[in-house]
Design a protein around this nucleic acid. Structure first.
Lengths: 214, 214
DNA sequence: CTGCATTTGTAGGATTTTCCTACAAAACGA
DNA sequence: TCGTTTTGTAGGAAAATCCTACAAATGCAG
């Protein structure tokens, strides 16, 4: 991606604690440039013109306003803006129709993963509408299970040890292979699961483990 | 920290999107072990006995229940548990008194930073009560400004370039110093600001810049 | 059931990053 | 003005990341 094509993001999320968590993850992505953030609808509208984002990520329920209303206002001023709305609950198709009507490009619910959110940001960045991933929580759990099953024996072993924060050199010793090999497993695991950093794997393994027990 | 002293964390946060964001950050910390998570109060109470966390991180407003009530229940069953409540709004001293009354060890608001939350987790992990950081948002903005001013000229330059994702070797070239030197600046910047990863710096610089303009 | 394609186990090399240490010159504080 | 910090600079060791490679095992299609 050349620098011109960097996704210019503006994020409107009420609570700093959560906004930071989201942004820290999002900003690991080199192709995303944060051009502004805000906690309220009014401030968002005020600042859009100055920073000219390509994508607006906005929570549905803001302290001062309805995110949808703000999005509509923003769109009337900046028609080229792609808006991704974060809704409190999963969307059904009739709600979705209303959203699309207002010019919103996609919706993610607060029950989805950050990875899905980021994927969606990219889908809509060039103005495409994105109606993806309305699967139920159950389906997503199955996805995770499937992903786990895609790991080979050795990979699972390494994933398990890594998620317990065993150091690479100790894993290598434990399995009787070289550190290089362990790194190779690590790379493959991360590619297969679409992860980039250890905490993602830890959380994944924790969840998988939890589901595997009962 | 020896493994025995790892902070065993259980996290109850309603929305996966935000829970993941928080946990990804929290789990960068080697001394924290996630032993369980949940979205609801009832499930939390059900699972505590099995996983025996040392610290319970719980949102005040859950879908099914009041986090405070759940915390009280949890504490009556597991008196050694340290509870950190995430409140929607900043706490004042009278609210704080009520919380302490129920045996909660600390409260953070959703306007605070993740770093403050993590610091608080450690403060309370051995059963200490923690009544810190009730500063207003304004004060915290000042903190950030002060932190920025603590950077030396060279450090600011490097911080600026890094936050624009300029590669270390290009920064080195730009400043006419060796990569090693740039790494040294990076290290110092991160130590001074208490950061661990680039996204934190990017967000910090973005905010600083924003504040610096008007 | 057999031959081609993919996955798995294994690891090396190049480059970068991290972590720690060092040290002289400048700035600061008492 | 003299000792203490801070700043600018960088080196070494160890680890991580990003590629590439390749033989053996597995799996699938005809």
């Amino acid at each position: 991606m050349n620098p011109q094509r960097r996704l210019r993001l503006f994020a409107t999320v009420s609570h700093r604690l959560f906004r930071d968590g989201l942004l820290f993850q999002i900003l690991h992505n080199e192709d995303i440039e944060l051009v502004g953030e805000s906690e309220t609808g009014v401030e968002t509208l005020q600042r859009l013109a100055a920073v000219r984002p390509g994508v607006l990520l906005i929570e549905e329920n803001l302290k001062d306003n309805d995110g949808l209303t703000i999005a509509e206002n923003a769109l009337s001023l900046h028609p080229a803006l792609s808006v991704l709305l974060i809704s409190d609950t999963p969307v059904n198709s009739s709600r979705m129709a209303i959203y699309l009507e207002s010019g919103i490009k996609a919706v993610v619910s607060k029950q989805q993963s950050i990875q899905e959110l980021i994927k969606t940001l990219f889908y809509i960045r060039s103005g495409q509408v994105y109606l993806g991933n309305w699967q139920s929580t159950r389906d997503r759990a199955d996805d995770a299970l499937t992903a786990y099953q895609a790991l080979s024996g050795r990979e699972r072993e390494v994933a398990r040890l890594m998620s317990q924060r065993v150091a690479v050199r100790d894993i290598a010793e434990e399995l009787g292979v070289s550190c290089k090999t362990v790194h190779s497993y690590k790379d493959r695991i991360f590619v297969k699961l679409g992860f980039e950093r250890l905490p993602e794997l830890i959380l994944f393994m924790q969840r998988h483990h939890q589901r595997a027990l009962p």
